[in-house]
């Protein structure tokens, strides 16, 4: 009894987690307009998706935003992790604490605080405000990923580089960066996905000049059912799956 019970339970919960996703994918190929009944196989929703110029535009905007937010947060996050790992400085605990708080705070708290800031300094809401906000919420995740990699790292290597006369900058470039490379890639992929998925923060800090995908989906699904969303959701799902597998593959390979 003790063996099959946990297994059945695990299977059941996984089933519940995946049923909606499977339903979404299946219905994205549904020819029926009503959205509930099955009307035969069709790619019409994918077609209408790509014929929708505003949608394609939002897609490109989102990709560009995710790309830049992931890159900026990886650079700053990696430097932060290196500093936290190697240097002693005043306020180190505070820095750690602030990153932790950013990670734990409800997104909506971060969202309104950033909106208040942007309006105060007179920054027009659009690409720049989105970028600043997205980098801020991605940052702690990159720092954690890189820190985890650094904590399992042999301290004698940088010591040796220094003894051989390498400057701090040279040592970082030639010894540390190669070591944390897998974590950088994993952190970048995580940041990319977080940015691409964000609804809460983007709702507050985006303006009409820069429409992004999650907000477009949001306005579509609030009223009734839109079969195009099934198709779009399926595409996003496949995309994130590829990203996730890539990041896992990088991390696992680097451990060997």
């Amino acid at each position: 009894m003790t063996r099959w019970l946990p297994r059945t339970y695990l299977t059941l919960v996984y089933l519940l987690l995946y049923v909606p996703i499977v339903v979404l994918v299946v219905f994205s190929f549904n020819d029926s307009r009503t959205g509930y009944a099955w009307g035969g196989l069709s790619l019409r929703w994918y077609e209408s998706l790509f014929n929708n110029r505003a949608m394609v535009n939002a897609m490109w905007n989102s990709l560009w935003l995710a790309l830049s937010a992931a890159t900026v947060s990886t650079v700053i996050g990696a430097l932060t992790a290196l500093a936290l790992h190697r240097y002693r400085f005043r306020g180190k605990k505070l820095l750690n604490g602030m990153l932790f708080v950013v990670m734990m705070s409800p997104e909506i708290v971060l969202a309104i605080s950033l909106l208040a800031l942007f309006l105060l300094v007179g920054l027009q809401l659009g690409y720049v405000s989105l970028l600043l906000a997205h980098v801020t919420f991605c940052l702690p995740f990159v720092v954690i990923t890189v820190m985890a990699r650094l904590s399992g790292f042999d301290e004698s290597l940088p010591e040796a580089a220094r003894d051989l006369g390498a400057s701090d900058f040279t040592m970082t470039r030639t010894v540390l960066i190669p070591v944390i490379m897998p974590a950088l890639l994993a952190g970048w992929l995580l940041g990319f996905t977080l940015s691409l998925d964000d609804v809460v923060v983007s709702t507050f800090v985006s303006g009409p000049s820069y429409e992004i995908l999650p907000l477009r989906i949001y306005s579509m699904v609030r009223v009734g059912l839109k079969p195009e969303v099934n198709a779009l959701g399926t595409l996003l799902l496949v995309f994130s799956l590829i990203m996730l597998m890539l990041s896992q593959w990088i991390l696992i390979r680097s451990k060997r």
């Binding site: 695990l10 996984y14 987690l17 995946y18 049923v19 909606p20 996703i21 339903v23 979404l24 219905f27 009503t34 959205g35 509930y36 996905t193 691409l196 998925d197 609804v199 999650p214 989906i217 949001y218 699904v221 059912l225 969303v229 099934n230 779009l232 959701g233 996003l236 799902l237 994130s240 799956l241 990203m243 996730l244 896992q248």
Partner: peptide, 28 residues
């Protein structure tokens, strides 16, 4: 199994909420 648990975390939460609508709707 852990991987299968993280997959939803990496997929769009808005889209997943919408998928629930397909299931729960009156004629869902």
């Amino acid at each position: 199994l852990i991987f299968l648990l993280i997959v939803p975390f990496w997929t769009n939460s808005l889209v997943r909420t919408y998928a629930l609508k397909l299931i729960l709707a009156t004629n869902g």
